[in-house]
Computed example of a mutant assay.
Amino acid sequence: MRTAFGQQFDVPDGYLNTASIGTPSMAVAEAVERAVREWRTGAGHAEEFDEPVALARRGFAELVGVEADRVAIGAAVSPLIGMVAASVPDGSRVLVAAGEFTSVSFPFAAQAGRGVTVTEAPLDEIGARAADFDVVAVSVVQSADGRIADLEALRCARASGTRVVLDVTQAAGWMPLELGWADAVAGAAYKWLLSPRGAAWMAVHPELELVPHAAGWYAGADPWSSVYGLPLRLAADARSLDTSPVWFGHVGAAVALPWLAGLDLEAVRSHCVGLADSFRAAMGLEPAGSAIVTVQRRGALGRLAEAGLVVAGRAGGARLSFHLYNTDADVTAALDALR
Rank of each mutant, 00 (worst) to 15 (best):
G308L: 04
V331I: 08
F106M: 14
A307S: 13
E47Q: 11
E178N: 12
T162D: 06
E48I: 06
E100I: 10
G65S: 06
P245S: 09
T102V: 14
L324R: 15
G299N: 05
A144M: 07
G59S: 04
G216W: 03
A184N: 01
H205M: 01
P24T: 10
V255D: 04
R57N: 03
S143V: 00
V268G: 03
A254I: 07
W39E: 15
E30G: 08
A19I: 13
E286Q: 13
D10T: 14
L335P: 08
H271T: 14
S78N: 00
A200G: 02
G74I: 09
I21Q: 07
A46G: 12
L338T: 07
G6N: 09
Y15G: 05
S226I: 05
G198P: 07
H250N: 11
S290D: 07
V164K: 02
G302A: 12
S25F: 10
T294V: 13
F322Q: 04
L95I: 02
V211G: 01
G99W: 13
P24W: 11
I81Q: 10
L320T: 07
G44Y: 08
A221M: 00
G91R: 00
W259M: 10
W224I: 06
T169Y: 12
P79S: 09
S225N: 11
N326L: 05
D13F: 06
D69A: 10
T169E: 12
A149M: 07
D336C: 11
D242H: 15
S195L: 02
L275E: 05
H323N: 01
I73H: 02
G161R: 03
I73E: 01
A128S: 11
I21W: 07
L324Y: 11
G289A: 13
N326W: 02
D222L: 15
